[in-house]
Amino acid sequence: MENLLSGYRRFRHTVWPSRRERFQALAQRGQKPETLVIACSDSRVDPAMVFDAGPGEIFIVRNVANLVPPFEDDTAFHGTSAAIEFAVRVLEVREIIVMGHAMCGGIHALLHPASAERLDFMSSWVDIAAEARDRVLACEPVEEKQQQMCEFEAIKLSLRNLMTFRWVESRVTAGRLTLHGASFDIRSGVLSRLNEEGEFVPAE
């Protein structure tokens, strides 16, 4: 805790004075980000840092393996779906980016179920992307390629699942909302974007 408090003190002395007016404006006018980023909870991947975004610029939803579940109309707890709904229906974001990353532990658990058996929630959560895993394994790739292929396929699946939400689909159809796929390589610092051909290519 002490190292975090030390970071807070540095923030108060160095960052806060220069950002005070920005925070005060956000407090008075509220947030109005144009982009929702659905990212992994991995501590090595910070969307705000990757996109060099300041306070109020992007609305971020983070979960294990940056997964979007399909729309379900029930009374269960839907944290990710609720956050997406708030961003789309209340904040009226114009873009949604599903951003995966290299060396994702959630995707590793999807590919190697035994690694998550002792955990209470991991297996059922990553099973959202079972279709992506099965598609990759059906291609019979060499083992070292499975991880990256599955990371990419899970992003594509999450983009398809977004379209099961009627208020996402209607806005996309009307041209009011655009969906994007991206993947960040924590080893090289390179962000790749999903292109129209279904391939991930460097954004630079």
Rank of each mutant, 00 (worst) to 15 (best):
C104E: 08
L162E: 06
C139W: 03
A130W: 04
N66Q: 07
A114D: 15
A114M: 11
E143F: 11
A65R: 05
E140R: 11
C139P: 00
R118L: 12
V93T: 08
I84D: 01
Q148T: 12
A130Q: 15
I96D: 01
A129S: 04
L67F: 03
N161S: 11
A116M: 07
K156L: 09
I96N: 02
F86Y: 15
N161M: 05
L67R: 00
F121G: 12
L111T: 05
E151N: 08
I155H: 00
A76F: 10
D127E: 14
E153I: 09
I96F: 02
L67Y: 04
A130H: 08
H112A: 11
P113R: 09
P69A: 12
R89T: 14
L137T: 03
A65M: 08
E95F: 02
E153R: 08
D134H: 13
R89H: 10
A102Q: 14
L111K: 00
F86S: 05
V64T: 01
W125A: 05
A132L: 10
E117V: 09
A138S: 14
M122P: 01
G106R: 04
V168I: 15
Q147Y: 10
C150G: 10
A114H: 14
A53S: 15
D74Y: 02
N63C: 07
V93A: 06
M149P: 05
D52P: 05
V93P: 02
S123D: 02
D74M: 01
R62F: 03
E151G: 00
V126D: 01
F71Q: 11
E144D: 14
V61P: 00
P55L: 11
L162Y: 04
E57G: 03
P69T: 04
T80I: 11
P113E: 07
D127M: 06
R135Q: 12
E57L: 08
A114V: 13
L91N: 07
G54A: 15
S123F: 03
R89P: 03
A53E: 13
V88C: 06
P141H: 05
V168Y: 02
A53Q: 13
F71H: 14
F77V: 15
A83T: 12
A138G: 13
W167C: 03
M122Y: 12
G54N: 14
H101V: 06
F152V: 10
R118M: 13
I107T: 15
E92G: 12
V90T: 15
R166E: 15
E85T: 13
V142P: 08
L91Q: 05
D134N: 15
S115V: 14
D127S: 14
T75R: 10
F165R: 06
P69C: 06
L91T: 07
C139R: 15
L91Y: 04
V64L: 08
V142K: 13
D74N: 15
P141F: 05
M103T: 12
I107G: 02
D120T: 13
D73I: 02
C150E: 09
V98S: 02
L67E: 02
H78C: 04
E92W: 05
Q147R: 11
L159D: 06
A132C: 10
A109I: 06
M122R: 01
P55D: 12
